[in-house]
Write a protein that binds this DNA or RNA. Structure first.
Lengths: 198, 198
DNA sequence: GGGCCCGATGTCAGTCGCTGCCATCACTTT
DNA sequence: AAAGTGATGGCAGCGACTGACATCGGGCCC
């Protein structure tokens, strides 16, 4: 992963490429270095070679910059549920979705995910935001299940269980010292759920 | 329930009784009348015959004023889990706690609960705060279960299920036109969970 | 090539949530 | 009555966020 940039990026100011990405990178760095509360939006924008006003054109608020990828993840999971074989029951469809998430939780993104997780878990406001993103994920999955003729109650319950497995899997993927494969960890966590429930 | 007060409460200004309660009442009224975003803390304080500065001495932030009772509810649930008969398994202990919550969710508080729920569900920031309160409730219950020699995984799982039942029950209690008893609704929701799981 | 259009950015002023610091008030204690 | 204590007010200030308007860069039309 790239080393933290401590000053403004030269040649990347106004009209440089990927303003949004520069802002997200600068934000994560600063939140990690000083903490979320001790970082001002003006500082983030400055490191990215932009202004505070532009930050708020790209992200709804100071927290949202850490959750830009959640819409993408949600789409991936929902599509995987929708595209699971017709023969698959609700749990199998959700399992397929969790496995498909390996596309985004791959080895190259692990360092990023680690840093992001550390920042979020260190701040109550960020944990709040993460909870609502997870809730949104769960309703989206439940909705996708309902479109597979799963009953309302079963859809909600399966989706919640799926998110629980997702949480456990993510925690392990990010925490464990050895660089384990996402899919293997998903299978492990699902198996544990089955043992607990059954 | 008392009628909304639309102006400053006479004789209840500085050093009047129950400043905290007056602030909470004024806040709920204004959030209901104008919406959360369109209400300023100065307006709340003014209606309660106090100043903005004093509001922030009683409540950590503008949202927290709607969640003042959550610590009390948490204590009630945790105590009920702890005091459940030794013979009770984890689910029975949680069920006992949910039934005990009927002490606070009684007929007199239903109108208040309705209004509060309407305000919260109308605003994303307030829904965020509610999610973190529910998460806190779940960990507290899980912790109480662990003190009853329940394994970590079973404690977390049972606590989460318990909160899910709580949510469903609360929704029904507040929504249904007939004024149903809390305990009866708890028993109904628990039964449905058993059917779904079993 | 010059003029024009348009999206991205900058600038500025302003509101509001929230905090620190110190003064003031009502009530209690001695 | 003097001192102490807890709750409140007043004020200054920071930082998140927004609206309105100006400006820049690049593409399009002729």
């Amino acid at each position: 992963m790239s080393v933290a940039v401590n000053t403004m990026i030269p040649g990347m100011s106004r009209w440089g490429p990927d303003a949004r990405g520069r802002l997200a990178k600068a934000a994560l760095e600063l939140y990690g270095e000083r903490g979320f509360d001790q970082t001002t939006v003006a500082e983030i924008a400055n490191r990215a070679g932009l202004t505070e006003r532009t930050f708020f054109r790209h992200f709804a608020d100071k927290r949202e910059v850490l959750f830009a990828g959640s819409a993408e993840l949600q789409k991936l999971l929902v599509d995987a549920v929708a595209n699971a074989p017709t023969s698959a029951g609700p749990i199998e469809a959700v399992a397929a979705a969790l496995l498909a998430a390996g596309d985004v939780f791959n080895a190259e993104r692990r360092d990023y995910a680690r840093e992001r997780r550390a920042v979020i878990s260190a701040n109550a406001d960020l944990r709040e935001r993460e909870l609502i993103k997870m809730a949104s994920l769960a309703s989206a999955i439940a909705e996708a299940l309902r479109r597979r003729e799963v009953s309302d109650a079963a859809a909600s319950l399966t989706a919640e269980a799926g998110i629980a497995v997702f949480r456990v899997t993510f925690e392990r993927w990010v925490t464990e010292s050895s660089n384990q494969d996402w899919r293997a960890l998903v299978r492990e966590s699902l198996e544990e759920l089955k043992v607990l429930v059954g």
